[in-house]
């Protein structure tokens, strides 16, 4: 398998947030990382995106230690959409999306025809084509999130790591995003996303990984993971599991 962690501990300031996690990401799926706040799901994602260095253990990409792979080469394999992004001054939307091509361009960052085709395509997929000439600093939170998503997609990697991508988006754009992720998945991409909406994860993802206090509690298909006991144990939530009348996937209703 391509992406896996081995006895991985990672955290901040000598304090482990993720504790000795062994995980193999199933390839070709949409995977959701779930858990209460502070459970370490974002930290685990960042470790898999080599933003954070392990305190113990390793992350492997195609059997090799992630941190031993040339960073430009790895940037052609794994892309990360962080949870929060600074607002760059004086940068147009089309320039920001073009930055996603950086792992492929030369030292001056010149964009060629093939790059431009991908940039245009991703701007269209995320519905931001008409924003192309606007400054990123002038956009709303939801628009900016889509611009950032387009930039991450322009990186054109087989693996996509997203940290709460639906934050700041209104409901219709959230749904569009989940559909877009499925479309990308059908093109062969593996997508790992941190989500806080359990029902959204159950409906749109193939494989759920549930974390609590830095450890993986359970993982598997939405049907096998989403149980009353799990919700009680992990989220301290009294809830019932029902079938979504439209998607036929499980969903939880809080009592």
């Amino acid at each position: 398998m391509s992406l896996s962690t081995h006895n991985l501990s990672v955290g901040y300031h000598d304090k482990a947030i993720v504790k000795q996690v062994d995980l193999t990401i199933p390839e070709g799926r949409i995977i959701a990382l779930l858990g209460p706040n502070g459970c370490g799901k974002s930290t685990l994602l960042k470790a898999m995106a080599r933003i954070l260095s392990p305190m113990e253990g390793q992350v492997h990409w195609q059997g090799k230690n992630l941190h031993s792979i040339a960073s430009k080469k790895l940037a052609q394999q794994l892309a990360l959409l962080p949870q929060t992004q600074p607002i760059p001054e004086g940068i147009k939307v089309k320039d920001l999306v073009a930055y996603g091509r950086s792992p492929y361009t030369g030292f001056w960052g010149r964009i060629n025809k093939d790059d431009q085709v991908i940039i245009d395509k991703m701007m269209e997929e995320t519905g931001i084509t008409e924003l192309a000439d606007q400054l990123v600093s002038e956009l709303s939170g939801g628009q900016r999130q889509r611009v950032w998503l387009a930039m991450t997609l322009a990186q054109d990697t087989p693996y996509l790591l997203l940290d709460e991508p639906t934050t700041y988006m209104d409901l219709s754009h959230q749904v569009e995003l989940m559909h877009l992720l499925r479309k990308l998945n059908l093109q062969g991409k593996t997508i790992i996303t941190v989500l806080h909406d359990i029902n959204q994860a159950a409906r749109y993802c193939d494989h759920l990984i549930v974390m609590k206090e830095g450890e993986i509690i359970t993982q598997g298909s939405p049907e096998s993971v989403l149980t009353q006991t799990m919700l009680k144990n992990v989220f301290s939530l009294d809830a019932q599991i029902h079938q979504d009348p439209i998607a036929k996937t499980p969903m939880c209703v809080v009592e």
């Binding site: 990360l80 962080p82 600074p86 940068i91 996603g100």
Partner: peptide, 23 residues
Amino acid sequence: LWLAKPLNLIHLGDDSAISLGIK
């Protein structure tokens, strides 16, 4: 001037910059 391209990317935050292959 050689640093122009990575400087663009560091503007996007460390996480994005690293993800785009910048040290």
